[in-house]
Computed example of a mutant assay.
Amino acid sequence: MKLPLMKKKNLTRVIRKATFISIVILMIFVLVASNEITHNQLARTAQPLNGCLSTDSLPCRDTSKETISEPFLPNPELNEQQRFLSAIARKLPTIPQPGTYEYTLLRTYGAVFVNQDVGIKLPQKDIFANEQETKEFQATLIMGHVDGTNDCYLQKSAADALNKARIQQHIPLKSGYGSGDCTRTFNTNLIFWHKYANNQILAKVQQGRETKILGLVAPPGTSQHLWGLAIDLRISNQEQRKALNQNGWFQTVENDVPHWTYVGLSEENLPLFGFKKQAIRGINYWLTPL
């Protein structure tokens, strides 16, 4: 008895899919034999192929490379420093060694590396060497405009969160208008540095002999402003601070009063990520535990 044309086509599809899956499974077991892939890894690889035979569409989509981003929470049994480092280790390829210049910068400006917002992009290191390196990183960012400003831009998630806070409260930029309060170029960072410091002070910072200057201005190539995740604001009351905190913005650089960092966490989760709350002259800073 001849099969109807439609059923015949469906049967052909099933055969093609079965052949495809057989080849894939064979390849998986070859990899198991040659590379000692674990049973769990094998299960994760083969599982997305389940159900392919029951679908009528071709080709069957392999979802083995598709991941669902789940918020990371540090192990609460770890100490503060370990919790913080476990979070930033997911973002930074290499954690600087204690006592190095990079570690000093991470301690001061590294709060952003715990950010769990999938919409932001973090640099692969905490120092940009020059303008070209900075531009190359910034060219990869998705930027958003800060409402009510002429030329203030941040990474979009940070800008969106700030705009929500500014709907709740009137929150002006430090300068009142300028891009210098928002995402900066390497050269702008350099200009700010030379306004307050010099190469001799930079050498002391690099040697670990000077750190107070870091609460006033960031050394060349190290500012959170280069990453589009910081802004300088003019804050005068607790309601403004509350609105910013509710939207993931916190003061994380000790003694830098106008400076706000987009951490992207709720205030109740900051201690879980190792942050230490420190009140200085009536301002609560959330500092890294390094």
Rank of each mutant, 00 (worst) to 15 (best):
I68Q: 08
G215K: 01
I68T: 12
K277I: 00
A43K: 15
L272W: 09
L244D: 01
L106N: 02
E210M: 09
N10F: 12
Q132L: 12
Q246D: 15
P271A: 09
M6F: 11
F273Y: 15
I142V: 11
V118N: 09
F275R: 11
S54L: 13
I283G: 01
I127C: 06
L31A: 13
C60V: 09
L31Q: 11
E136Y: 07
D181W: 08
L154P: 02
T55A: 10
A43V: 14
W260F: 14
Y177Q: 11
L216R: 10
L265Y: 03
L122C: 05
L78N: 10
L214C: 01
V146Q: 12
T94A: 08
E239F: 08
M6Y: 13
G180N: 05
T12E: 14
V14R: 15
D147R: 14
Q200W: 01
Y109T: 07
N187G: 08
K174L: 15
T104K: 06
I142P: 01
Q41H: 03
G215I: 02
A203R: 10
L105I: 12
N269R: 14
V257K: 13
T108V: 13
Q251G: 03
D117F: 05
M1D: 06
A161C: 06
N50V: 14
N198C: 05
S57R: 12
G282E: 03
T288L: 05
Q169H: 05
T45Q: 06
A230Y: 04
Q81L: 12
Q206I: 06
G51L: 03
G110T: 07
A139V: 01
L73E: 06
R241I: 13
L214R: 03
E66T: 14
T188N: 06
